[in-house]
Protein backbone atom coordinates (compact mmCIF):
# COMPACT_ATOMS: atom_id res chain seq x y z
CA UNK A 1 0.00 0.00 0.00
CA UNK A 2 2.73 2.41 1.00
CA UNK A 3 4.67 1.48 -2.08
CA UNK A 4 1.66 2.12 -4.26
CA UNK A 5 1.08 5.50 -2.66
CA UNK A 6 4.74 6.33 -3.08
CA UNK A 7 4.52 5.39 -6.75
CA UNK A 8 1.42 7.52 -7.11
CA UNK A 9 3.17 10.61 -5.81
CA UNK A 10 6.32 10.01 -7.85
CA UNK A 11 4.16 9.33 -10.90
CA UNK A 12 2.15 12.49 -10.44
CA UNK A 13 5.34 14.50 -10.21
CA UNK A 14 6.67 13.05 -13.42
CA UNK A 15 3.27 13.09 -15.09
CA UNK A 16 2.74 16.78 -14.32
CA UNK A 17 5.51 17.78 -16.67
CA UNK A 18 4.24 15.42 -19.35
CA UNK A 19 0.73 16.79 -18.93
CA UNK A 20 1.90 20.33 -19.56
CA UNK A 21 3.86 19.27 -22.62
CA UNK A 22 1.01 17.18 -23.98
CA UNK A 23 -1.51 19.96 -23.49
CA UNK A 24 0.70 22.33 -25.48
CA UNK A 25 0.88 19.79 -28.29
CA UNK A 26 -2.89 19.17 -28.21
CA UNK A 27 -3.65 22.90 -28.42
CA UNK A 28 -1.67 23.21 -31.65
CA UNK A 29 -3.08 19.99 -33.07
CA UNK A 30 -6.57 21.30 -32.37
CA UNK A 31 -6.25 24.49 -34.38
CA UNK A 32 -4.07 23.39 -37.27
CA UNK A 33 -3.93 19.60 -37.28
CA UNK A 34 -0.18 19.74 -36.80
CA UNK A 35 1.53 17.13 -34.62
CA UNK A 36 4.39 19.31 -33.50
CA UNK A 37 7.63 17.34 -33.41
CA UNK A 38 9.41 20.63 -32.73
CA UNK A 39 7.66 21.14 -29.38
CA UNK A 40 10.66 19.84 -27.42
CA UNK A 41 12.87 22.46 -29.06
CA UNK A 42 11.17 25.08 -26.92
CA UNK A 43 12.88 23.40 -23.97
CA UNK A 44 16.19 23.20 -25.83
CA UNK A 45 16.03 26.90 -26.60
CA UNK A 46 14.96 27.78 -23.06
CA UNK A 47 17.80 25.63 -21.78
CA UNK A 48 20.40 27.60 -23.69
CA UNK A 49 18.81 30.86 -22.60
CA UNK A 50 19.03 29.63 -19.01
CA UNK A 51 22.64 28.63 -19.54
CA UNK A 52 23.48 32.09 -20.89
CA UNK A 53 21.78 33.73 -17.92
CA UNK A 54 23.62 31.56 -15.43
CA UNK A 55 26.86 32.56 -17.16
CA UNK A 56 25.86 36.12 -16.31
CA UNK A 57 25.28 35.08 -12.69
CA UNK A 58 21.53 35.35 -12.57
CA UNK A 59 19.73 33.18 -10.04
CA UNK A 60 16.89 30.71 -10.62
CA UNK A 61 14.45 33.34 -9.38
CA UNK A 62 15.19 35.39 -12.45
CA UNK A 63 15.91 32.53 -14.80
CA UNK A 64 12.66 30.66 -14.17
CA UNK A 65 10.31 33.41 -15.35
CA UNK A 66 12.71 34.20 -18.18
CA UNK A 67 12.42 30.60 -19.37
CA UNK A 68 8.68 31.02 -19.76
CA UNK A 69 9.09 34.24 -21.75
CA UNK A 70 11.78 32.74 -23.98
CA UNK A 71 9.62 29.70 -24.62
CA UNK A 72 6.60 31.81 -25.62
CA UNK A 73 8.75 33.99 -27.88
CA UNK A 74 10.41 30.96 -29.50
CA UNK A 75 7.03 29.34 -30.12
CA UNK A 76 5.77 32.49 -31.85
CA UNK A 77 8.92 32.91 -33.92
CA UNK A 78 8.79 29.29 -35.11
CA UNK A 79 5.16 29.77 -36.10
CA UNK A 80 5.98 32.96 -37.96
CA UNK A 81 9.05 31.61 -39.74
CA UNK A 82 7.75 28.20 -40.72
CA UNK A 83 4.34 26.97 -39.68
CA UNK A 84 2.48 30.03 -40.97
CA UNK A 85 3.77 29.06 -44.41
CA UNK A 86 2.38 25.55 -44.42
CA UNK A 87 -1.07 26.25 -42.98
CA UNK A 88 -3.63 24.00 -44.59
CA UNK A 89 -0.97 21.77 -46.18
CA UNK A 90 -1.26 17.98 -46.06
CA UNK A 91 -0.55 16.14 -42.81
CA UNK A 92 2.53 14.66 -44.45
CA UNK A 93 3.95 18.14 -45.12
CA UNK A 94 3.04 19.39 -41.65
CA UNK A 95 4.71 16.43 -39.93
CA UNK A 96 7.92 16.75 -41.91
CA UNK A 97 8.04 20.51 -41.45
CA UNK A 98 7.95 20.14 -37.70
CA UNK A 99 10.50 17.32 -37.83
CA UNK A 100 12.73 19.54 -39.96
CA UNK A 101 12.46 22.37 -37.46
CA UNK A 102 13.30 20.02 -34.62
CA UNK A 103 16.47 19.08 -36.47
CA UNK A 104 17.29 22.62 -37.57
CA UNK A 105 17.08 24.08 -34.07
CA UNK A 106 19.37 21.43 -32.62
CA UNK A 107 21.76 21.96 -35.54
CA UNK A 108 21.93 25.69 -34.94
CA UNK A 109 23.00 25.06 -31.36
CA UNK A 110 25.66 22.62 -32.53
CA UNK A 111 26.86 25.23 -34.98
CA UNK A 112 26.95 28.18 -32.62
CA UNK A 113 27.43 26.72 -29.17
CA UNK A 114 28.73 23.19 -29.09
CA UNK A 115 27.65 19.63 -29.63
CA UNK A 116 28.33 18.79 -26.00
CA UNK A 117 26.22 19.35 -22.90
CA UNK A 118 26.25 22.66 -21.09
CA UNK A 119 25.90 22.39 -17.32
CA UNK A 120 24.22 24.86 -15.02
CA UNK A 121 23.49 24.77 -11.30
CA UNK A 122 20.41 23.00 -10.00
CA UNK A 123 18.58 24.66 -7.12
CA UNK A 124 19.66 23.13 -3.81
CA UNK A 125 16.21 21.91 -2.86
CA UNK A 126 15.71 19.74 -5.93
CA UNK A 127 16.99 16.64 -4.17
CA UNK A 128 15.57 17.37 -0.70
CA UNK A 129 12.85 15.14 0.61
CA UNK A 130 10.41 15.29 3.47
CA UNK A 131 8.51 12.49 5.14
CA UNK A 132 4.77 12.07 5.53
CA UNK A 133 4.18 8.91 7.53
CA UNK A 134 6.05 6.16 5.71
CA UNK A 135 6.18 8.17 2.51
CA UNK A 136 9.21 10.05 1.42
CA UNK A 137 8.25 12.93 -0.79
CA UNK A 138 10.65 14.95 -2.89
CA UNK A 139 10.27 18.66 -2.38
CA UNK A 140 10.73 18.92 -6.14
CA UNK A 141 7.75 16.67 -6.87
CA UNK A 142 5.57 18.60 -4.46
CA UNK A 143 6.49 21.88 -6.11
CA UNK A 144 5.99 20.47 -9.59
CA UNK A 145 2.58 19.07 -8.76
CA UNK A 146 1.53 22.31 -7.10
CA UNK A 147 2.70 24.58 -9.89
CA UNK A 148 1.22 22.27 -12.53
CA UNK A 149 -2.15 22.31 -10.81
CA UNK A 150 -2.12 26.09 -10.69
CA UNK A 151 -1.04 26.28 -14.34
CA UNK A 152 -3.71 23.84 -15.44
CA UNK A 153 -6.38 25.70 -13.49
CA UNK A 154 -5.25 28.98 -15.03
CA UNK A 155 -5.35 27.38 -18.47
CA UNK A 156 -8.82 26.00 -17.86
CA UNK A 157 -9.94 29.45 -16.75
CA UNK A 158 -8.42 30.94 -19.87
CA UNK A 159 -10.17 28.42 -22.10
CA UNK A 160 -13.52 28.56 -20.31
CA UNK A 161 -13.84 32.16 -19.23
CA UNK A 162 -12.12 34.37 -21.75
CA UNK A 163 -13.21 35.23 -25.25
CA UNK A 164 -9.81 34.11 -26.49
CA UNK A 165 -10.39 30.72 -24.87
CA UNK A 166 -13.78 30.44 -26.52
CA UNK A 167 -12.31 31.40 -29.87
CA UNK A 168 -9.56 28.81 -29.46
CA UNK A 169 -11.99 26.04 -28.54
CA UNK A 170 -14.30 27.05 -31.34
CA UNK A 171 -11.46 27.02 -33.85
CA UNK A 172 -10.29 23.64 -32.59
CA UNK A 173 -13.77 22.21 -33.10
CA UNK A 174 -14.59 23.78 -36.46
CA UNK A 175 -12.13 26.25 -37.90
CA UNK A 176 -14.27 27.55 -40.77
CA UNK A 177 -17.35 28.12 -38.67
CA UNK A 178 -15.30 29.93 -36.07
CA UNK A 179 -14.10 32.26 -38.81
CA UNK A 180 -17.71 32.82 -39.86
CA UNK A 181 -18.33 34.03 -36.30
CA UNK A 182 -15.54 36.57 -36.71
CA UNK A 183 -12.70 34.63 -35.06
CA UNK A 184 -9.51 35.83 -36.76
CA UNK A 185 -7.51 32.85 -37.97
CA UNK A 186 -4.15 34.60 -37.51
CA UNK A 187 -4.88 35.66 -33.97
CA UNK A 188 -6.22 32.34 -32.85
CA UNK A 189 -3.32 30.35 -34.31
CA UNK A 190 -0.74 32.72 -32.86
CA UNK A 191 -2.59 32.64 -29.57
CA UNK A 192 -2.45 28.86 -29.63
CA UNK A 193 1.30 28.94 -30.22
CA UNK A 194 1.74 31.44 -27.39
CA UNK A 195 -0.28 29.24 -25.04
CA UNK A 196 1.64 26.19 -26.17
CA UNK A 197 4.90 28.06 -25.57
CA UNK A 198 3.74 29.15 -22.13
CA UNK A 199 2.91 25.57 -21.12
CA UNK A 200 6.21 24.32 -22.51
CA UNK A 201 7.94 27.09 -20.57
CA UNK A 202 6.47 26.00 -17.24
CA UNK A 203 7.33 22.38 -18.04
CA UNK A 204 10.75 23.56 -19.19
CA UNK A 205 11.59 25.17 -15.84
CA UNK A 206 11.20 21.85 -14.08
CA UNK A 207 12.70 19.78 -16.85
CA UNK A 208 15.83 21.94 -16.75
CA UNK A 209 15.95 22.11 -12.94
CA UNK A 210 16.00 18.36 -12.77
CA UNK A 211 18.45 17.88 -15.62
CA UNK A 212 20.85 20.66 -14.64
CA UNK A 213 22.10 20.82 -18.22
CA UNK A 214 21.07 21.30 -21.80
CA UNK A 215 22.31 19.94 -25.11
CA UNK A 216 21.41 20.31 -28.78
CA UNK A 217 19.43 17.08 -28.68
CA UNK A 218 17.74 17.87 -25.35
CA UNK A 219 14.39 18.38 -27.08
CA UNK A 220 13.92 14.79 -28.22
CA UNK A 221 12.97 13.32 -24.89
CA UNK A 222 10.36 15.92 -23.83
CA UNK A 223 8.97 15.94 -27.37
CA UNK A 224 8.51 12.18 -27.42
CA UNK A 225 6.93 12.12 -23.98
CA UNK A 226 4.61 14.97 -24.87
CA UNK A 227 3.57 13.48 -28.20
CA UNK A 228 2.98 10.07 -26.69
CA UNK A 229 0.99 11.52 -23.79
CA UNK A 230 -1.13 13.59 -26.16
CA UNK A 231 -1.79 10.50 -28.23
CA UNK A 232 -2.66 8.35 -25.21
CA UNK A 233 -5.33 10.87 -24.39
CA UNK A 234 -6.71 10.92 -27.90
CA UNK A 235 -5.23 13.48 -30.26
CA UNK A 236 -7.12 16.74 -30.31
CA UNK A 237 -8.68 16.36 -26.87
CA UNK A 238 -7.12 18.82 -24.42
CA UNK A 239 -8.61 17.04 -21.43
CA UNK A 240 -7.27 13.77 -22.82
CA UNK A 241 -3.79 15.22 -23.23
CA UNK A 242 -3.58 16.16 -19.55
CA UNK A 243 -4.87 12.76 -18.53
CA UNK A 244 -2.45 11.11 -20.96
CA UNK A 245 0.45 12.96 -19.31
CA UNK A 246 -0.43 11.64 -15.88
CA UNK A 247 -1.04 8.13 -17.21
CA UNK A 248 2.37 8.13 -18.88
CA UNK A 249 4.10 9.40 -15.73
CA UNK A 250 2.43 6.81 -13.53
CA UNK A 251 3.11 4.00 -15.99
CA UNK A 252 6.79 4.87 -16.07
CA UNK A 253 7.15 4.99 -12.31
CA UNK A 254 5.16 1.83 -11.72
CA UNK A 255 7.14 -0.10 -14.29
CA UNK A 256 10.49 1.18 -13.17
CA UNK A 257 9.94 0.01 -9.61
CA UNK A 258 8.39 -3.32 -10.59
CA UNK A 259 10.26 -4.61 -13.60
CA UNK A 260 12.94 -7.20 -12.83
CA UNK A 261 16.45 -5.78 -12.61
CA UNK A 262 17.55 -7.04 -15.98
CA UNK A 263 14.80 -5.21 -17.83
CA UNK A 264 14.52 -2.09 -15.65
CA UNK A 265 16.82 0.01 -17.85
CA UNK A 266 14.43 -0.71 -20.68
CA UNK A 267 11.49 0.95 -18.92
CA UNK A 268 11.08 3.66 -21.53
CA UNK A 269 11.19 1.10 -24.28
CA UNK A 270 8.59 -1.04 -22.54
CA UNK A 271 6.34 1.98 -21.97
CA UNK A 272 6.53 2.93 -25.63
CA UNK A 273 5.84 -0.61 -26.66
CA UNK A 274 2.74 -0.61 -24.47
CA UNK A 275 1.66 2.66 -26.02
CA UNK A 276 2.11 1.22 -29.49
CA UNK A 277 -0.06 -1.71 -28.42
CA UNK A 278 -2.66 0.67 -27.01
CA UNK A 279 -2.76 2.34 -30.39
CA UNK A 280 -3.18 -0.87 -32.19
CA UNK A 281 -6.21 -1.75 -30.11
CA UNK A 282 -7.55 1.74 -29.56
CA UNK A 283 -6.34 3.91 -32.43
CA UNK A 284 -8.47 6.78 -31.18
CA UNK A 285 -6.65 6.95 -27.81
CA UNK A 286 -8.05 6.53 -24.32
CA UNK A 287 -10.57 9.30 -24.57
CA UNK A 288 -12.84 9.33 -27.53
CA UNK A 289 -13.88 12.90 -28.00
CA UNK A 290 -17.55 12.49 -27.10
CA UNK A 291 -19.30 14.39 -29.84
CA UNK A 292 -22.99 14.17 -30.26
CA UNK A 293 -23.87 13.11 -33.78
CA UNK A 294 -24.24 16.06 -36.10
CA UNK A 295 -27.61 15.69 -37.72
Amino acid sequence: MTELLQNLIDGLGRGSIYALLALGIAVIFGVMHLLNFAHGELITISGYAAYAMFQADFSWYVVAPAIVLVSIAASLVIEWVAFSRVRGASDFTLLLTSFGIHFLVSSVFILYVSASKKQFPRPGWVTNTFAVGDLSIEVFDAVVIGVTLVTLLATVALLQRTMFGLALRGAAEDFDTARLMGVKSNSVIRGAFALSGFLAGIAGIFWLMRAGNTAPSAGISPMLSGVIAALIGGMGSMRGAVLGGFVLGLAEVMLRSRLPDGIAPLTDGVVFLMIALLFIFRPQGLITVARAERV
Binding site: H33, L35, S90, D91, F92, L95, L224, V227, I228, L231, M235, D268, G269, F272, L273, I275, A276, L277, F279, I280, F281, P283
Partner: peptide, 24 residues
Protein backbone atom coordinates in the same frame (compact mmCIF):
# COMPACT_ATOMS: atom_id res chain seq x y z
CA UNK B 1 -0.38 -2.66 -35.97
CA UNK B 2 -0.50 -0.13 -38.78
CA UNK B 3 -3.36 -2.01 -40.37
CA UNK B 4 -5.26 -2.05 -37.08
CA UNK B 5 -4.81 1.68 -36.72
CA UNK B 6 -6.43 2.18 -40.12
CA UNK B 7 -3.26 3.49 -41.76
CA UNK B 8 -3.78 5.53 -44.88
CA UNK B 9 -1.92 8.16 -46.82
CA UNK B 10 -0.76 10.91 -44.49
CA UNK B 11 -2.28 9.36 -41.35
CA UNK B 12 -0.82 10.89 -38.20
CA UNK B 13 -1.43 7.88 -35.96
CA UNK B 14 0.37 5.59 -38.41
CA UNK B 15 3.39 7.86 -38.35
CA UNK B 16 3.41 7.82 -34.58
CA UNK B 17 3.38 4.02 -34.53
CA UNK B 18 6.46 4.03 -36.76
CA UNK B 19 8.04 6.63 -34.48
CA UNK B 20 7.39 4.35 -31.50
CA UNK B 21 9.14 1.53 -33.38
CA UNK B 22 12.19 3.74 -33.95
CA UNK B 23 12.26 4.85 -30.35
CA UNK B 24 11.76 1.41 -28.81
Amino acid sequence: GLARSGAESGAVSATVITLALLFV
